[in-house]
C-alpha cells in the first residue's frame, strides 16, 4: 500500500502534464468555435433548468413549498444558479423513479435537499446564497 503511495506524486505530475498538453492541442484545433459536444451540453442544461422551473409552476409543488415556508421566487432564483451537474442529477432521480410514483414528492424532495437546505443555511456550500435568518 505504501509502495503505491510513493508513486503517487510522479504519476500525478505526469497526468497533469498530459492534461495540459491535451487541453493545449484541442484549444488550438478549434479555438473560438462552439464545438458540437459543448453546444449539446449547454442546450441540455438549459432544457433541464426549464423543466425544473416548469415543475415549480405546479400547484401541488407550490403548496408543499409554502408549507415549508419558502417562496416560489426564492426557489426559482436558486434554480437559476444550479450547476449543470446538479440539474443532471435531478433529471436522473426523476428518470429512475418508478413509473406512477408521486412525482410531486420527488420534486419537492429534490428542492428540499438541494435547495432549501442551502437557503436555511443548513449547509454552507454556496456562498452566493443569502441566508434566511
Amino acid at each position: 500500500m505504501s509502495e503505491i503511495r510513493s508513486y503517487r506524486k510522479p504519476v500525478a505530475t505526469i497526468m497533469a502534464m498530459l492534461l495540459a498538453i491535451a487541453t493545449l492541442f484541442s484549444a488550438t484545433a478549434q479555438a473560438g468555435m462552439v464545438g458540437t459536444a459543448e453546444m449539446l451540453q449547454q442546450q441540455q442544461t438549459e432544457l433541464d433548468r426549464q423543466q425544473l422551473l416548469e415543475m415549480l409552476d405546479q400547484q401541488a409543488v407550490q403548496d408543499k413549498l409554502a408549507d415549508l415556508g419558502v417562496s416560489q421566487a426564492q426557489v426559482a432564483e436558486r434554480i437559476q444558479n444550479l450547476t449543470p451537474q446538479e440539474l443532471a442529477d435531478f433529471q436522473q432521480q426523476l428518470a429512475e423513479a418508478p413509473a406512477g410514483q408521486d412525482v410531486v414528492g420527488i420534486i419537492v424532495l429534490f428542492l428540499l435537499v438541494f435547495i432549501v437546505t442551502d437557503m436555511l443555511c443548513a449547509t454552507d456550500l454556496f456562498s452566493f446564497v443569502h441566508c434566511l435568518r
Partner: peptide, 14 residues
Amino acid sequence: LLGVLLLAGCATAP
C-alpha cells in the same frame, strides 16, 4: 435522497 427513493421503490408494479 436515495434512501427515500428506495423506500418509494417498494411500491407495487404499475
